[in-house]
Each structure stands twice: as structure tokens, then as C-alpha cells.
């Protein structure tokens, strides 16, 4: 630390300019259009966005926890619990939606609160705490449904995931889920990048000791991050309930997809750096990859192999870049 050309390193360490995830997404979309020109039509891209919406929302919530220096593995089983729970509570009564939806959102917040409390006060590392929560919630979903969930949700509940607004100029129609996506992501992006909360989420993920000595309420910020992730899980569950059927594995695997999406968007594992729009970009890119694999007629297990490799590759690339910029 004696010499070293200060200005030189300064230039190299300037905050990132263009995030590679957008380049990746553009390439993937190009490939999809090449294979299926119909994608440029509203039915093509709107359905793509609709399908991507739950994952994108989930990734936008997950990036809070990752940036704060943790992981949230419980969101996949939270989705399952929301879908199963909603089907049990509504019990085919369309009028029940009006209290079941807020209740499910509250449940998401509650699960996040619990995760946060366990991590902050019982000092359980978030990876383990939320893994335990994941197993617990899956078990709860089974117990609640008696192992045989009812096959449907009332249409009023499925409205969010399934309905469209028709006769919109330019794009012809907009799925409700895309509107939900825009609103949720807009809010989460604003919170992350424009408010005190967002700056402090970054600070505690970067260096919790320094943040604490600077007066940052570390626990409160961390718990809030988990609650936002839980809330995003509940919203994703409500959307998925609209287009998938009710089953006890509707949410399985989503937690890892969300983490992959956030990392693709350049979120720093172990905290300190993360972007909501880029995580959403990561989710869209991941969905685009799945779409391509679908076109190619590759079966589900191949998707898993690819997803696993992407996660490893994204982290390896991030580590490589970090070494080059000299952390």
C-alpha cells in the first residue's frame, strides 16, 4: 500500500458501466427471434414476459437478501405453501380471494420475518436457516393439504396470473401478471437504489462490522431484506397459482433459479453489491434460455443441467472479474 499509481486503480475501479447481463439477454432474445419469428408479435413476447414474471419478481426480492450478505432458500417452498394454502382457504369460494390474497402476502412477510429473526438472533447462517425453513414449509404444505391438494383455485384468485387486459393500443393486450411485474419491480428497484434502506442493505452486506459501528441498525435492515424476499415469494406464488395447477411441487427449484438470476445480474455473492433491474434481467435471460431449450426439444433434466452450469459459470466469471479488479 505504499505506492501504486493511485489514479490508475481509480480508473479501473469505477462502478460498473454496462452490465453484461443485458448483452446476454439481447443475444438470447435474438436467438429466440431467429428460431421463432412469431416472438416479435405481442402474443410471443407478452407470453414470454408473463411466464417470466414470477421468477423475475422472486429474483428482485432475492437480490435484497444476497446484497445484504445472505441467501434465501425458503422462497420456493413458500410459493408452494401459498398456492396450496390459497386453494385450501378459498375452498372454491370466489369471494374468499379478497381476504386470502392479503393473508398470503402477510404470510410471505411473516416467513421473511422469521427467517430474519433466526439469522439475526439465533445466529444461524442464512444458508442453513432458510434451508431449514424450506424443508419446514414443504412439510407444512403437505400437512395442510393432507397430501392431496385440491385441484383448483377460484377464477377470482387466478385473475392475477391468468387474465389479460385486451384492446391495448400498440401491444394489443397486456397480461395482469406483467403489470404486477412492472409495479413490483419498479417499487423494489426504487427501494434498493434510491432509499436509505437500499444503501444500508449494501452496507451491511459489504461490511457488517463497519456498518454497525457507523450506527446502521444491522438487524433491522437484515430482517427487512428477508421480509421483502418473503413478500416477493408470496406474490410469485399468487401469480403461479394463476397459471399452474395446485400441487405440492409448484414452487420447487424456484429458489435456486432466483439466486442464479440474481448472480447473472452481477449480484455479489456474500453481499455488498446487487441491482434489482439486473437481477430481473438475469431472470429474463434464464427464462429465455429455458425457452430456447424448449424450442430445441430438450427434456426437463437438460434444463437442470444447464441451469446448474450457468450458476457455476456466472459465479466463476464474477470471481474472475473480481480478481482482475483486485479485491
Amino acid at each position: 500500500m505504499t505506492d501504486g499509481a493511485d489514479m490508475q486503480t481509480a480508473r479501473r475501479l469505477r462502478l460498473p458501466q454496462i452490465n453484461p447481463v443485458w448483452v446476454l439477454l439481447a443475444v438470447l432474445i435474438g436467438a429466440i427471434i431467429f428460431m421463432n419469428p412469431g416472438f416479435t408479435q405481442p402474443t410471443g413476447y407478452m407470453n414470454f414476459l408473463k411466464r417470466a414474471a414470477p421468477l423475475a419478481i422472486l429474483a428482485a426480492g432475492q437480490v435484497y437478501v444476497i446484497t445484504s450478505g445472505g441467501f434465501d432458500l425458503s422462497v420456493g417452498s413458500l410459493i408452494t405453501l401459498v398456492v396450496v394454502g390459497a386453494s385450501m382457504l378459498t375452498n372454491n369460494d370466489p369471494a374468499a380471494t379478497y381476504w386470502v390474497v392479503p393473508l398470503m402476502l402477510g404470510m410471505g412477510l411473516g416467513v421473511g420475518l422469521l427467517n430474519g429473526l433466526i439469522v439475526c438472533f439465533l445466529r444461524v447462517p442464512s444458508l442453513i436457516a432458510t434451508l431449514g425453513m424450506m424443508i419446514t414449509l414443504t412439510g407444512l404444505a403437505f400437512m395442510w393439504s393432507g397430501g392431496a391438494p385440491r385441484g383448483y383455485l377460484p377464477d377470482t384468485f387466478r385473475f392475477f396470473g391468468r387474465e389479460l387486459i385486451r384492446d391495448v393500443p400498440l401491444v394489443r393486450f397486456i397480461p395482469i401478471s406483467v403489470i404486477v411485474l412492472l409495479v413490483v419491480v419498479g417499487l423494489l428497484a426504487w427501494l434498493m437504489h434510491r432509499t436509505n434502506l437500499g444503501r444500508q442493505v449494501h452496507a451491511i452486506g459489504d461490511n457488517p462490522v463497519a456498518a454497525g459501528l457507523a450506527g446502521v441498525p444491522v438487524n433491522r435492515v437484515r430482517i427487512t431484506a428477508f421480509m421483502l424476499s418473503g413478500l416477493s415469494g408470496a406474490i410469485a406464488g399468487i401469480l403461479l397459482g394463476g397459471f399452474a395447477g395446485v400441487s405440492t411441487d409448484v414452487g420447487s427449484g424456484y429458489e435456486l433459479q432466483a439466486i442464479t438470476a440474481a448472480v447473472l445480474g452481477g449480484a455479489q455473492l456474500l453481499g455488498g453489491r446487487g441491482s434489482v433491474p439486473a437481477a430481473v434481467g438475469g431472470a429474463l435471460a434464464l427464462t429465455a434460455i429455458f425457452t430456447l431449450l424448449n424450442f430445441l426439444g430438450l427434456p426437463q433434466p437438460v434444463r437442470q443441467v444447464v441451469q446448474g452450469l450457468i450458476l457455476i459459470a456466472a459465479v466463476a466469471l464474477a470471481m474472475h472479474r473480481r480478481q482482475q479488479t483486485g479485491t
Binding site: 434510491r194 432509499t195 436509505n196 444503501r199 444500508q200 449494501h202 452496507a203 459489504d206 457507523a214 433491522r220
Partner: peptide, 27 residues
């Protein structure tokens, strides 16, 4: 103990004042 190294110079300067402002307030 002092710095949040990955954050900007300005964010490091504003860290404490933000910590005592409302969580949902503008940064």
C-alpha cells in the same frame, strides 16, 4: 471496521446520516 469498501466515496460519507433517517426515506 470503518469502511464499506465496495460502496462509493459519497455513500461512505453518508452512511451514518442515512442510518438515522427513515428506512424508506430518499437516500
Amino acid at each position: 471496521e470503518g469502511l464499506v469498501l465496495m460502496q462509493s466515496v459519497r455513500d461512505n460519507g453518508m452512511l451514518t446520516s442515512r442510518a438515522f433517517a427513515p428506512l424508506w426515506g430518499r437516500a
